[in-house]
């Protein structure tokens, strides 16, 4: 698989480390009423879809950026690659 890095261009997936579903960016609010249940779901439950999957890849053998890659889990075709920082900012997770 080749990952088209937003700033570096196409890179071999072997340069990356896989983390899992991109929803892991959205860490629950620890002060919420149901924080315990939210953290159990966050830590242990996954959608695990067959088809399009947004997921976190870390460019360990490169610029050490975190990416959000949209990839089809049935065909391995990659349709979108974004910097995780941009995604997190868009979702109001960081400044």
């Amino acid at each position: 698989m080749m990952i088209d890095h937003p700033t570096l261009g196409p890179r071999d997936a072997a340069e990356f480390v896989y983390m899992g579903c991109a929803s892991l960016i959205n860490r629950p609010d620890w002060q919420a009423e149901d924080a315990l249940q939210q953290f159990i779901d966050y830590g242990y439950q996954r959608d695990n879809p067959s088809g399009a999957h947004r997921e976190l890849w870390f460019h360990e053998g490169g610029d050490r950026s975190w990416l959000v890659v949209t990839r089809d889990t049935v065909t391995h075709a990659i349709t979108q690659v974004e910097l995780a920082r941009d995604v997190a900012r868009r979702e109001g997770r960081s400044k």
Binding site: N48, S50, T73, V74
Partner: peptide, 8 residues
């Protein structure tokens, strides 16, 4: 394992 989610 290859290390990424897959049904392929």
């Amino acid at each position: 394992i290859d290390g990424y989610n897959s049904y392929a």
